[in-house]
Amino acid sequence: MTEFDPKDMEYRFLGNTGLRVSILSYGGWLTVKEDSERITKECFEEAWKHGVNFFDTAEVYANGECETVFGKVFKELGWTRSDYVVSTKLYFGFGEKSPNGRGLSRKHLIEGMDKSLKRLQMDYVDVVFAHRPDREGVPMEEVVRAFTQIIQDGKAIYWATSEWSAFEIEHAHHIATKYGLIAPIAEQPQYNMFHRNRFEAEYYPLYQLYKYGTTVWSPLAGGVLTGKYNDGFAPGTRFGDASNPVVQRGRSRLESAEGKAMIEKVKKLTPIAEELGCTTAQLALAFLLKNTNVSTIITGSTRAEQVKENMGALQVYKKLTDEHIEKIEQILDNKPDYLKLY
Rank of each mutant, 00 (worst) to 15 (best):
R303K: 13
S256C: 01
P133V: 03
Y26E: 10
E305Y: 08
T80A: 14
R102S: 14
L289C: 08
S162W: 07
L339A: 13
T40K: 05
Q152R: 14
T215K: 04
I182T: 08
A130M: 07
V86C: 02
A62Y: 04
L314K: 03
W48V: 11
Y61R: 02
E329I: 01
G227A: 00
V60N: 10
H108G: 09
K340V: 05
E59N: 14
L24I: 12
G236C: 03
T17C: 02
Q248L: 06
G223K: 01
F239K: 07
S82K: 15
G300A: 05
E168I: 03
G51R: 09
W48A: 03
A281F: 03
S301L: 07
G232A: 05
K118S: 08
M262A: 10
R106G: 07
E258R: 13
V224T: 13
N16S: 13
G51W: 07
G300I: 09
E37T: 15
G259V: 01
G112P: 14
T80S: 14
Q149H: 12
I150V: 13
I175D: 02
T321S: 10
V138S: 06
L341N: 15
Y191G: 10
V85K: 15
A273R: 00
I328Q: 06
A172Q: 07
L90R: 04
N16M: 01
A160I: 01
E141R: 12
S98A: 05
Q248F: 00
G18F: 02
L77M: 11
Y61K: 04
Q149F: 08
Y179M: 10
D8S: 08
P6M: 01
T148V: 02
L209Y: 14
M140Y: 00
D126C: 05
M113S: 10
S25T: 06
S301K: 06
G232T: 14
W29T: 02
Y207H: 14
V266E: 12
N63Q: 13
V247C: 00
V86I: 15
R196K: 13
N63G: 01
D123A: 09
I182P: 13
L341M: 15
A304V: 00
E10H: 08
E258F: 12
D153R: 09
M113L: 06
P336A: 03
G15W: 11
A257H: 11
W79L: 14
T68F: 02
T214Q: 04
V125E: 07
K335L: 08
N230G: 10
A304Q: 00
F70M: 12
R251H: 07
G154Q: 04
A146F: 03
D35Q: 09
L24V: 01
T270K: 15
L181E: 10
R238I: 01
D35P: 05
T2W: 10
E34H: 03
F4K: 07
V246L: 04
K97T: 11
F13V: 12
Q190A: 12
K211G: 15
T40A: 10
D322M: 12
A281M: 12
A281P: 14
A201Q: 14
